[in-house]
């Protein structure tokens, strides 16, 4: 138990697994002169759900956006030290094509962002980018992706109406369907339920349980119950450092670190 919470002087090293699909190795990350991540080391296993939790500003979203190099879009950001390796390839190698990386590492955003196009066009967007034009094949993928995102029954009669006509939860599932349509290996979810009501949230969580069989999922969440309910591994971040990383059950029942214990029991954050 701790009464005051100060930034940890040295981060606890997270577990590294040799068979990790994604290996994050001693990563420092900067927004301009501000260091947002300090010496992060952790491995993410294939076909598992890994949750990043922690209070606002702890760096969990920043780390997530490192994995598909979305941070490249922000001026002045850089990985100062360390490597991120996916399937054994350092994603910052000069010969890594960020377009190819992002095709394999899909992303679902905090604020659902269906494009102002029809539901059908939303799903086929990524495929068309890759030059797929075969109508029958597209139709097939649209149905498969919408079924995969548990949305098919609700929208099958209005595929050609705007994706923006859907409810908030449906929009977020549309974004998930759009992400899985291009068959990525990993799906990054950046607080996918933060704008949703409990019923819509429950549906997304259910969906995550179904998707884990086919995809590796990394989910950033504010909601500790959500992490507890749907993840296999949980990493707790605080002030840009990885405090503890373990099986979700252990994090929530017998956390090794007093700060983790204070956070998951709701005493701060």
């Amino acid at each position: 138990m701790v009464s005051t919470l100060e930034p940890p002087v040295s981060a606890l090293p997270g577990p590294r697994r040799a068979d990790a699909l994604i290996a994050i190795d001693h990563v420092d990350f900067y927004y301009g002169a501000t260091q947002a991540l300090h010496d992060i080391t952790l491995g993410i296993e294939a076909k598992k759900v890994t949750a990043f939790i922690g209070p606002s500003g702890c760096g969990k979203s920043t780390l997530l956006r490192c994995l598909n190099r979305m941070n490249d879009l922000i001026d002045g950001t850089r990985v100062g030290r360390g490597t991120i390796t996916i399937r054994g390839v350092d994603i910052h190698r000069p010969d890594v094509d960020v377009i190819e990386l992002r095709k394999r590492i899909g992303m679902v955003f905090q604020k659902s962002n269906p494009f102002p196009k029809s539901i059908y066009e939303n799903i086929t967007y990524g495929l068309r980018l890759q030059g797929l034009k075969d109508k029958a094949r597209l139709d097939e993928i649209v149905e498969k992706s919408l079924r995969g995102a548990a949305l098919w029954e609700e929208v099958k009669d209005r595929l050609h109406t705007s994706g923006l006509g859907l409810s908030g939860g449906q929009q977020q599932r549309l974004c998930i369907a759009r992400a899985i349509a291009v068959e990525p290996e990993v799906i990054l979810m950046d607080e996918p339920c933060s704008a949703l009501d409990p019923v819509a949230t429950a549906k997304i969580e259910e969906l995550i349980q179904e998707l884990r069989a086919r995809f590796t999922i990394v989910i950033v969440t504010h909601n500790m119950q959500q992490a507890a309910r749907c993840s296999d591994q949980t990493a707790f971040f605080y002030l840009g450092r990885l405090i503890e990383y373990a099986d979700t059950r252990d994090i929530f029942t017998k956390p090794a670190n007093p700060q983790t214990e204070a956070y998951v029991s709701g005493r701060f954050g």
Binding site: M70, L73, G106, K111, N113, F115, Y125, L129, R178, A179
Partner: peptide
């Protein structure tokens, strides 16, 4: 135009010009 449209496109593997021209 909301940033989400650009990010959404890029996250699906669009090149920058593809994202701009289509989305």
């Amino acid at each position: 135009v909301p940033k989400g449209f650009r990010e959404g496109s890029l996250a699906l593997g669009a090149t920058k010009w593809q994202a701009i021209s289509t989305n």
